[in-house]
Amino acid sequence: TLDDSATICRVCQKPGDLVMCNQCEFCFHLDCHLPALQDVPGEEWSCSLCHV
């Protein structure tokens, strides 16, 4: 889900339109996540760090 609060991106440390991982609660810009996300993920989304 998009989170436009004062939360910062885990990768670039900047605020903005972010998606939050449902497991670790880290936030990412779509372009900062590795691999980059093309679209906003669904409600139950886990980042690539949680899939390691």
Rank of each mutant, 00 (worst) to 15 (best):
L30Y: 11
D3N: 11
L37K: 04
F28A: 11
D39A: 09
D4A: 10
V52Q: 02
L49Q: 15
P41G: 09
P15H: 10
F26H: 05
P35T: 03
L49C: 07
F28V: 08
D17G: 14
V19M: 09
S48Q: 08
H51D: 13
T7D: 13
R10Y: 08
D39G: 08
C9M: 02
D3C: 03
G16A: 02
M20S: 11
C24V: 00
D39M: 08
P41C: 08
K14N: 04
L37R: 11
C50V: 03
G42R: 11
V52I: 05
A36V: 14
I8Y: 14
C50P: 13
L18G: 02
L2P: 15
T7S: 11
W45I: 08
E25V: 03
I8A: 11
H51I: 07
F26V: 06
D17W: 03
D31T: 06
V52L: 05
T7I: 12
M20H: 01
E44C: 14
F26T: 02
S48K: 09
S46L: 13
D3L: 08
F28Q: 03
D4G: 08
C9S: 01
L18M: 02
S5I: 12
P35V: 04
D17L: 06
V11R: 10
P35E: 04
C24E: 02
A36C: 02
V40S: 10
P35H: 04
Q23G: 15
H33D: 14
C24D: 01
H33G: 09
H29I: 00
Q38M: 04
H29D: 01
Q38H: 07
C47D: 04
C24L: 00
G42W: 06
I8P: 06
L37S: 11
G16H: 08
L34P: 13
N22A: 08
M20A: 06
L2Q: 13
V40A: 06
Q13M: 13
L49W: 14
G16I: 03
Q23V: 08
C32F: 00
H51R: 14
H51V: 12
G42F: 09
S48R: 14
F28Y: 11
D31E: 09
T7C: 04
L37P: 10
P41M: 06
H51N: 03
A36P: 14
H51T: 15
C24P: 00
Q23M: 05
D4W: 12
F26M: 11
T7P: 09
H29Q: 00
G42Y: 04
C21R: 00
C47M: 01
L34K: 14
D3F: 13
L2C: 09
N22E: 14
A6R: 07
D39F: 08
C47L: 01
K14T: 06
E44R: 11
S48N: 10
D39W: 03
L49A: 15
E43V: 09
F28T: 07
L37C: 12
C21V: 01
P41N: 10
V40Q: 05
D4I: 13
C21F: 00
C50I: 04
Q13E: 14
D39S: 08
V52F: 09
G16Q: 04
W45E: 09
L2T: 15
E25M: 07
W45K: 10
L37G: 10
C47S: 06
E25S: 14
A6G: 10
W45T: 03
E43G: 11
C50A: 11
E25L: 10
G16S: 11
S46N: 13
H33E: 15
P35Y: 01
D31N: 15
G42M: 11
V40N: 08
L34H: 15
S48A: 10
L37E: 03
E44D: 09
L2I: 11
P15N: 05
A6D: 07
N22T: 09
Q38I: 14
S5A: 04
C24M: 00
L18I: 05
L30T: 07
E25G: 07
A36D: 05
Q23T: 12
P35C: 04
D4L: 14
L49T: 15
L2D: 11
N22V: 09
E25P: 02
D3A: 01
Q23A: 05
V52S: 14
R10C: 05
Q38T: 05
Q23F: 07
L2A: 11
C21Q: 01
C47W: 00
P41F: 04
S5V: 05
L2R: 08
L30Q: 04
H29W: 00
T7W: 04
P35G: 08
E44P: 05
D4V: 15
P15D: 08
D3K: 13
G16N: 15
H29F: 01
F28D: 03
C24H: 00
C9V: 01
D4M: 14
D17M: 05
S46T: 11
C47Q: 02
D31W: 00
D17S: 13
H33I: 06
D31H: 12
W45H: 11
L34T: 12
D39N: 03
D31V: 08
I8K: 11
C47Y: 01
E43P: 12
P15G: 10
S46A: 14
V52D: 07
C32N: 03
N22S: 12
D17R: 12
D39P: 08
H33T: 08
A6I: 01
D3Y: 07
A6V: 05
P41S: 05
E44S: 12
L37D: 07
V40D: 12
V11Y: 03
M20W: 01
P15E: 12
D17V: 05
D4Q: 07
V19Y: 09
L30V: 12
E43M: 12
Q23L: 09
L18D: 01
E43D: 14
V40K: 08
Q23N: 12
H51Y: 03
L37Q: 11
F28H: 05
L18Q: 03
R10Q: 07
W45V: 08
P15T: 03
G16P: 00
N22K: 13
A6K: 03
L34V: 14
H51G: 06
V19N: 03
C27S: 15
P41T: 02
V19R: 05
C32A: 03
K14I: 00
P15L: 02
V11G: 08
N22C: 11
C9P: 06
E44T: 09
Q38N: 14
Q38W: 04
S46W: 10
C50K: 11
C9G: 00
D31Y: 07
E43L: 11
H51C: 07
Q23Y: 06
S5Y: 02
T1V: 12
A36T: 09
P15S: 12
C32M: 00
V19D: 13
S46R: 11
F26S: 09
S48V: 03
H33N: 10
C50W: 03
F28S: 04
C21I: 01
P41E: 11
I8G: 04
F26Y: 10
M20I: 05
Q23R: 09
G42Q: 12
C47T: 02
W45D: 03
E43C: 10
S48H: 13
V40G: 06
C9R: 00
M20Q: 13
E25F: 10
C32H: 03
Q38S: 07
V11W: 04
H33S: 13
L34I: 06
P41I: 06
L49E: 15
C32E: 01
